[in-house]
Amino acid sequence: EKTLKIVADSEEEAEALAKELAEKYNLEVTIERNPEEEGKYVITIKIKP
């Protein structure tokens, strides 16, 4: 299993990107607040072998 993390500037941007990735590529995608940067969100994508 591989994990890729993407940082987005807004929750709306994160949700839109996560939804597109999940639907288009059938990936497991989660969104959470970035504890290191206020106002940023981390999109985590898990790629199963």
Rank of each mutant, 00 (worst) to 15 (best):
L27A: 15
T3F: 10
K40D: 02
P49G: 13
K2Y: 01
E38T: 07
I31C: 03
L17M: 12
L4M: 11
E36C: 10
E11G: 03
K46W: 04
K48E: 08
E15A: 15
K5T: 15
T30P: 00
K19S: 07
I6C: 06
V29H: 01
E15V: 15
K40T: 09
R33I: 11
A16L: 13
P49E: 08
E20T: 13
E20M: 15
Y41I: 06
V7Y: 15
E12P: 04
E28W: 03
K5E: 07
D9Q: 11
K46M: 09
T44P: 00
N34G: 10
N34V: 12
L17D: 00
K24S: 04
T44I: 15
G39I: 02
L21I: 11
K46T: 13
N34F: 10
E13I: 08
E28T: 10
L4N: 05
E12K: 08
L17A: 03
E12F: 10
V29R: 00
E37C: 12
I45L: 04
V7E: 13
E13V: 08
E38C: 08
S10K: 02
E28C: 10
T44C: 07
K19L: 06
A22G: 11
E1Q: 10
V7M: 13
A14M: 03
I31R: 01
G39N: 08
E20N: 10
T3K: 09
A16V: 10
I47W: 14
L21F: 09
E11D: 03
V7Q: 12
R33A: 14
E15P: 00
D9N: 13
R33Y: 08
P35H: 09
E15R: 15
T30A: 05
Y41F: 14
Y25P: 04
E13R: 05
E11A: 10
I45D: 00
E28K: 05
R33S: 08
I45T: 02
K48R: 14
L21E: 00
N26W: 12
A8L: 15
E38A: 05
L17Q: 02
E1T: 07
I6Y: 14
I47P: 07
L27W: 15
G39K: 03
I45Y: 01
K48A: 11
K46L: 14
Y25K: 02
A16N: 09
L21P: 00
I45H: 00
A18L: 07
D9T: 08
T44D: 01
V42C: 03
P35D: 11
A14P: 00
E11T: 05
K40Y: 05
P49D: 12
S10H: 02
P49F: 11
I45K: 00
K48I: 12
L21C: 04
L21N: 00
E36A: 11
S10I: 01
L4H: 10
E23Y: 09
E1V: 08
I31G: 00
E32M: 09
G39Q: 03
A22W: 13
K48M: 12
I43H: 00
I31W: 13
E23S: 10
K24G: 03
E36P: 03
N26T: 04
A22I: 13
D9C: 10
I6K: 02
A8D: 00
E1I: 10
R33M: 08
T44A: 03
E36G: 15
S10P: 00
I6D: 01
P35R: 07
A16G: 06
A18F: 04
N26K: 08
E36H: 12
I47F: 14
V29G: 02
N26M: 06
T30D: 03
K5V: 14
K40H: 09
V29K: 00
E20R: 13
I45G: 04
A22D: 02
K40I: 07
K5H: 13
K24T: 04
E37N: 10
A18W: 04
K24N: 07
K24D: 03
E23V: 04
E28Q: 09
I45M: 02
S10A: 01
I47K: 05
E23N: 09
L17K: 06
K40C: 05
P49S: 14
Y41L: 05
A8H: 01
N26I: 02
G39C: 08
E37G: 10
Y25E: 03
N34M: 13
L27T: 15
